[in-house]
Write a protein that binds this DNA or RNA. Structure first.
Lengths: 236, 236
DNA sequence: TACTCCTACTTGTCTATACAAGTGGCATTC
DNA sequence: GAATGCCACTTGTATAGACAAGTAGGAGTA
């Protein structure tokens, strides 16, 4: 048995939560039920459940049970919120426009030099997206994805329009952490035009490296953010 | 026995780590040693150790032992690094200048309205500090601390020059989380002068609410950051 | 009806034990 | 001397139980 039992239980439950088999706000089976289902002891089941708590999938309540988190954070407890979290849950309407269809590129921009751990994979899939809130452009995101073992990635649309969800559902790659640098800069002409700002307006510039469950598989993003109307917030 | 045994073990180890009894980078006693010391079983000791990992006090290595984290994060896994973490560990020399000695104020600034959960405690201790790296001013921080049960706070100097360390050591208040909003703004005259920038330079503006181990005790900070030379980075 | 109490079920804490697997040093061997 | 293999010690995973404490609902009582 290569992967530990508690990891298997954890993965099984995670799958049932993300697929909606256990609905948001509902209870998952009790520890004892899970013990019989997986033929394990309570300590082992609890270890799996504690991992899910850490990842933000469930919360636990003494005397009641384990509750599926209402807002399923696809990034666990990451620093800056993901797009869906900035927009989500409110009545605000979000939209994403792909400016440049996925194509193969190399990272030559020196801006990522701090974040690159090895000297750049041969090739990356490049993705340029503009995100709107209430029909106002607020975020320009340029993403680099390693061009390895991702069949049909550039030809098929995203699952639910989400990159992370696509990686998770179709390629079993789970984004589980990140490193980032945040700066305030003056918008250049290109960025200002896309975000409908005056040139030299202050914008947030974020450089990110996402780590995943796949060894050595990192995503890189360069993000420009208009924080005039909507600030970037983070919790805990 | 009111507090659980594993919490007692956790607190005892935390105290020995923060006091320097277990030096940074060194090993704490093995699980079995801790079992005999506290007269507990390994599962109980492991629960305490896992909590300390979550809080960032130690890392564990299979086959070797539990290592005291080199950079003791006083904020656990918070989003944006604390001052000591931005500067620390490198050869860079940090310095903090208190511009305005601690004095009693009320929060009337509307900028905190999103973060205030109750309508402002009666009074706050106000603190205005300018932080330097390599003799360059990079951060202007205005902090509001509830003026409750903090004897001698305004008259005695900080422990090791650190606010959080003072709260922890002298008042047993542990800062354990935060909520924040990040924006890019143009520096006004006052901020620009202090940070030695041109007026209207882009600066990072961060509004923070720190939560603590003391019920209902929140700190508020407004931070202006020059990110030209030093970006704000965060991990995990 | 309204209240209390009891009970079944849940998670929280804890004991005692076992084997697996990674690390590092010592002793033996070449 | 250098390489190998063994061994002691470490953390990782897992079993099988026990009692405590919080929750919710139903039975019985006022």
């Amino acid at each position: 048995m290569k992967t530990p039992l508690y990891r298997q239980i954890q993965a099984s439950l995670k799958e049932k939560i993300t697929s909606g088999f256990y609905p948001e706000g509902g209870l998952i089976p009790s520890e004892n039920d899970l013990c019989t289902e997986f033929n394990a002891t309570r300590m082992t089941v609890r270890q799996a459940l504690n991992e899910l708590v850490k990842e933000g999938y469930i919360t636990r309540q003494h005397g009641k049970g384990s509750i599926v988190s209402a807002i399923r954070k696809s990034l666990g407890l990451l620093s800056l919120k993901g797009w869906t979290e900035v927009v989500g849950a409110s009545d605000r309407h979000g939209k994403t426009v792909i400016l440049e269809n996925p194509n193969i590129k190399k990272i030559e921009e020196p801006i990522f030099k701090h974040l690159l751990d090895v000297e750049s994979h041969a090739e990356f899939i490049f993705l340029k997206r503009l995100r709107f809130v209430e029909d106002t452009p607020v975020m320009l995101e340029e993403t680099y994805i390693p061009n390895e073992e991702l069949p049909n990635f550039t030809t098929e649309p995203f699952v639910e329009g989400s990159l992370f969800r696509t990686l998770f559902m179709k390629y079993q790659i789970d984004v589980n952490g990140m490193t980032q640098e945040v700066r305030a800069i003056s918008a250049d002409k290109a960025v200002a035009n896309l975000l409908k700002l005056k040139v030299k307006s202050p914008v947030l510039h974020i450089l990110r490296r996402y780590s995943t469950s796949k060894e050595g598989f990192y995503l890189y993003s360069s993000i420009y953010c208009d924080t005039e109307k909507f600030a970037i917030s983070s919790f805990n």
